[in-house]
Design a protein around this nucleic acid. Sequence first.
DNA 1: TGACAAGTACGAAAGCCTTCGTATTTTGGC
DNA 2: GCCAAAATACGAAGGCTTTCGTACTTGTCA
Lengths: 126, 126
Amino acid sequence: MIRPTNAELAILGVLWQRGPSTVRDVHDALRAARREAVGYTTILKLLQIMTDKRLVKRDARARTNVYAAAVSEATTRRHLLSDLVDRAFGGSSLALVLQALSSTRATPAELEQIRRLLDERKGDSR
Amino acid sequence: MIRPTNAELAILGVLWQRGPSTVRDVHDALRAARREAVGYTTILKLLQIMTDKRLVKRDARARTNVYAAAVSEATTRRHLLSDLVDRAFGGSSLALVLQALSSTRATPAELEQIRRLLDERKGDSR
DNA sequence: TGACAAGTACGAAAGCCTTCGTATTTTGGC
DNA sequence: GCCAAAATACGAAGGCTTTCGTACTTGTCA
């Protein structure tokens, strides 16, 4: 099961965006993006834990290790979404979609984008 | 911020479905619905904690207290959803909706339901 | 009225997440 | 070859969630 915690998601976010990165890369990226930064060794520790959990892969050939996401963004999002569906929407994806749609701020262009996706899926029960 | 934990959500689920309930009611309902049950005092403790957090309201007039959800299902779902949007979808509700739509198993009738909702919101940027 | 059943209160333990400090290792340059 | 700088390893603390045992309270009814 792929269900990264909050801090793990933040790190994965960096890896998805930057590609394979060192601890320092991740640390710097997060410091740039956040109000208050977290210690260098915190990032290191998290990456070690994430390596154990197989959320990232570590390339230790060089002295300075390079970490890469081992799970894709899309897959992770899918898992988190399905987890939420189970926990809070009685297992109904439809309920989640409807709720999301009705409380989201969408521009006409975005609504159109959704409509196109619906069209593609017309009559397809995948 | 309304962000019930897992166990809390399970209890809220019972309260939303049954209405105001005693500890025993909740305990029985969960035992019926679950593979393996949790102790009576666990439910009691959780309800006490949830009372502190203002997730439920306690009516202590009778000897046997009656608990009622203090947050609505829709509101809770909205909060959880927006939390997930922030944590995993870069703040984009649209991304979440698209992801949910593309990985959900929807029947044509359900797709139609979504389409109707879209029609209602046409040109409305709420 | 007194004992028992049912309810409530509360402390504590186990497990996870996040954080960091400290110790150890490595390496590049002088 | 040696040292300082940078990196890694590791333990541990604090906080939160979930669980439960035990102690205390209260009402009922024989």
